[in-house]
Amino acid sequence: MTMSTDPWVWLAALLSLFIFSYLYKDNPLFKFAEHLFTGLSVGYLIVIYYNNIVRSYLLNPVLADHRWVLLVPFAIGLLYLFRFIPKLSHLMLIPIAITLGIWNGIALPLTIEADIIRQMQGTMINTSMFRNPWDPYTGLAVGILIAVGVICTITYFFFSREHKGALKVSAHIGIWFVMIGFGASFGYTVMARVSLLIGRLQFMFTEWIHLIK
């Protein structure tokens, strides 16, 4: 068994061990690694933001290509800084309003299209589903299951009527669908968390201690 001679691999491996030490209990080594990560990521983000955003979308086009019009949105963006001057802090609302307005304008019709209309289309049972009834995506069996699930779940989250009679039955079926969904989600999450552990151990056993080839 050999070990890595790369100091960066050693650093990464030791920091991973510091984090793992939290499993036993909270301790200064864990705190050190956590704070180091927080500080580093802030520093890294500043560099990335400057290089990839400020320089390529503002400085270069203005200074090299003289696209002066870009200074207008830049000035509007600067209004955010008025948040530190209480008397003028209302000026901050201008960029917020512009951002919200633009995003809502883009988002609303597209969300209705992608998340509601297209999904409704997928939920409706139709004659094309009879062609291949057991297909896991487009078959009739799955189609019925999805349609019943969607309608019953919607009734569970309907707050304008008491859950009585038919509504109660439907809401009850709905909550079963929700719980089965949560079960699936739980199982997937377990796999996700174990994968993260495996990923770290793979790094330690392949790059740090050469245990696995």
């Binding site: 409706m124 309608i151 919607i154 989250f157």
Partner: peptide
């Protein structure tokens, strides 16, 4: 709530028409 009800209704009506 009423948007949800509308979606549910459209789903049922749409499926009925489509079939």
């Amino acid at each position: 709530d009423w948007s949800k009800a509308l979606v549910g209704l459209l789903l049922v009506a749409g499926a009925a028409l489509a079939l």
